Simulated assay, not measured.
Amino acid sequence: MRTQTCCEVSPAAVAPDELGHLDVLESEAIHIMREVAGQFERPVLLFSGGKGSLVMLHLALKAFRPAPMPFRLLHLDTGHNFPEVMAHRDAIVEHHRLDLSVVPVREYADADPLRERPAGSRDPLRTFPLADVLRRGRHNAALEGTRGDADTGRAGPRVFSPRGESRPEHHEQRPELWSLYNSRHRAGEHMRVLPLAHWTELDVWHYVDREGIELPDVYYAHERRVVPRADRWLAAGDHAPRGSEPVEKRLVRYRTVGDMSCTEAVESAAVTVTEVIDEITSLRTGEPGSTRADARWPAAGVETREREAYFS
């Protein structure tokens, strides 16, 4: 594992009148986070240890330094995690002395509010636990690292999305003209906030490169035992292989990191940030389409979870 310098802030070598693309994105995300801190009580930042949440944490620390970050970290733990990612998550939390709450999704399944999926993935089961934790903890805002390009079925996700007891409808979402955000909410409502809504996968990697953010090793090429599924590779573990499926060793990396049972690897030789950026630039397939098996499961699709109040 690399030395933990993940969220140390490096000074920007850009004059105020020469803001580049990344500077504009960073400024917008920091503005959104400060707005959340000023308008909401007990906000949380969803933190899994993946690249999106690590960028979010870096931005949050940068937004409020030298003061402590005003967000508690929350991880909905499916129990099907990459060990490298969990080790990195815990090291970052310890390094910055942060307050992390881990909510095991399995406990909800054991208590019967949820049923395990036949395919084995618990990723879509996070919907109910998230809503329940926010309600019981009186957290009226949740910051998440979802990007606008993470699903082609959703055009222009709202940065601030109010949620109440009922399932959200698209006509209830507020317009955000000229980047003016409406953070008003009624009693009993909470707000889902997406500071990275206008970022792309390449933006995230360019920002990781510029800021020197450390990521778990699974994002870079490494040898791993995998199970072939069609033209994709699933990590060998409790959920795979099935029956007589073969297990092979391949040089792979992960473009996104989530539940091991539905996150697929891509063959790659990219071992540095620059090589990863070059690789992504040459690809035509988006991140979910090439790495998420659950993107092809109707019961776990984004539109289904959107109706169930998981996404904005």
Rank of each mutant, 00 (worst) to 15 (best):
M1V: 14
R2H: 14
T3P: 14
V9C: 07
P11S: 11
A13E: 15
P16G: 05
D17G: 08
G20I: 13
L22H: 09
D23K: 05
E28K: 05
E35Y: 14
V36H: 02
A37D: 03
R42P: 08
R42A: 14
S48I: 06
S53T: 04
L57W: 08
K62S: 05
A63T: 01
M69L: 12
P70Y: 08
F71A: 00
L73T: 02
H75D: 07
L76E: 00
E84H: 09
E84G: 10
M86D: 11
H95V: 04
D99S: 11
L100S: 02
P104S: 04
P104H: 06
E107H: 13
Y108P: 01
D110G: 11
A111P: 03
E116G: 09
R117I: 05
A119P: 01
G120K: 10
G120R: 08
D123C: 14
R126N: 08
R126H: 02
F128Q: 10
P129S: 02
P129R: 03
L130S: 02
L130I: 05
R135N: 12
R136Y: 08
H139W: 11
A141W: 03
L143H: 10
T152W: 12
G153S: 03
G156L: 01
P157Y: 02
R158N: 01
R158L: 00
R158Q: 02
R158M: 00
G164R: 10
P168Y: 03
H170V: 07
H171R: 15
E172W: 10
Q173W: 06
E176R: 02
W178A: 15
W178S: 15
S179G: 11
L180T: 14
S183N: 13
H185E: 12
H190S: 10
L194D: 00
P195F: 03
L196N: 06
W199I: 06
T200P: 03
D203C: 02
H206S: 05
E211P: 01
L215T: 02
D217L: 13
Y219W: 08
A221C: 14
H222M: 13
H222Q: 15
A230H: 13
R232I: 09
L234H: 12
A235T: 15
D238H: 11
G243D: 03
P246Q: 12
R250P: 00
Y254R: 12
Y254Q: 09
R255E: 15
V257T: 09
D259C: 07
M260L: 15
S261K: 05
V266P: 04
E267F: 03
E267L: 13
A269N: 14
V271D: 09
I277H: 07
G286A: 09
S290N: 09
A293C: 03
D294W: 01
D294F: 01
A295G: 10
R296D: 15
E306Y: 00
A309T: 00
Y310M: 02
F311E: 00
S312P: 13
